[in-house]
């Protein structure tokens, strides 16, 4: 089955955009420009990626997949590092973290034949894993900075009693991990109850049987769940060190805070 959305139907979508636009106009929210710009930009981005994907899908998997994965990981790294750009080595930590996660996920998918090594399957599914990991890393970085700021006194007290940076950061790392994992766990708990997950919806709309769609959804949901957990763990375990110098002293906190 090859179902398509007509160009006219797409144009009708403008009506949907006009709803928030009108609300912004009447309530003077000052968001008109943002609403228009994000809608146009989103549409252009998606069409461009559509063209790129069509091109990549026609390449040999061994060429197309590495190219697209590299691009996705690079963009995700630049985006996630913004959340902690004042910290040293954040770019490398995020980059190596994302590569590691992608390798682990790919190894699992391919070893157990969950996903076939074709651009059509690997690229969108990896996109979801990398995208969610990117968000988790960014959130972990932000959370870690705010935990170090909030608990500055307690960390100083711990150091003063003879704690190493690892021991002094225990509480901070734990809270960062908690904050990153809890929404993820909650999401998995309510999966399918509140809204049908995007990939499953897409497959069903594309004519795949619901049970098969659910199997794919499970593969991607569990993969995302583990990747997000791994992302938070990598960021927390590596980045806390950079809040200290080699003499087990907190580095100038204002400097970190203000960048």
């Amino acid at each position: 089955m090859e179902r398509d959305v007509s160009n006219f139907s797409l144009l009708v979508l403008i009506v949907f955009v006009m709803i928030p636009f009108t609300i912004s106009y009447f309530y003077q929210l000052g968001l008109k420009k943002d609403i228009l710009w994000s809608s146009i930009r989103g549409a252009i981005q998606l069409f461009l990626i559509g063209l790129i994907l069509t091109y990549l899908f026609n390449l040999k998997p061994l060429i197309g997949i590495p190219i697209m994965l590299s691009v996705m990981i690079t963009i995700a790294t630049f985006h996630a590092r913004k959340k902690g750009k004042e910290l040293p080595n954040v770019f490398m930590t995020v980059l190596v973290g994302l590569i590691t996660i992608e390798i682990i996920v790919l190894a699992l998918w391919l070893s157990f034949d969950m996903v076939s090594f074709t651009p059509e399957e690997i690229i969108p599914m990896s996109g979801m894993v990398i995208g969610n990991s990117m968000v988790a890393m960014g959130l972990s970085l932000e959370r870690m900075k705010s935990e170090f700021e909030t608990n500055h006194g307690k960390i100083l007290a711990a150091l003063s009693l003879g704690a190493t940076p690892k021991q002094a950061s225990h509480l901070t790392v734990r809270r960062t991990l908690n904050a990153a994992l809890i929404p993820n766990i909650d999401q998995l708990k309510t999966i399918g109850l509140v809204q049908l997950p995007g990939m499953m919806t897409g497959l069903i709309l594309g004519g795949i049987e619901p049970i098969v769609a659910i199997k794919y959804q499970l593969v991607i949901s569990i993969s995302i769940f583990s990747s997000v957990s791994l992302s938070a763990i990598i960021v927390s375990m590596v980045m806390y060190r950079f809040f200290y110098n080699q003499n087990m002293q907190l580095v100038d906190f204002q400097k970190i805070k203000n960048g």
Binding site: L156, A157, L161, L171
Partner: peptide
Amino acid sequence: GIVLQYPYLF
């Protein structure tokens, strides 16, 4: 051992 200005208890 140092006692800081504020207690900062765990």
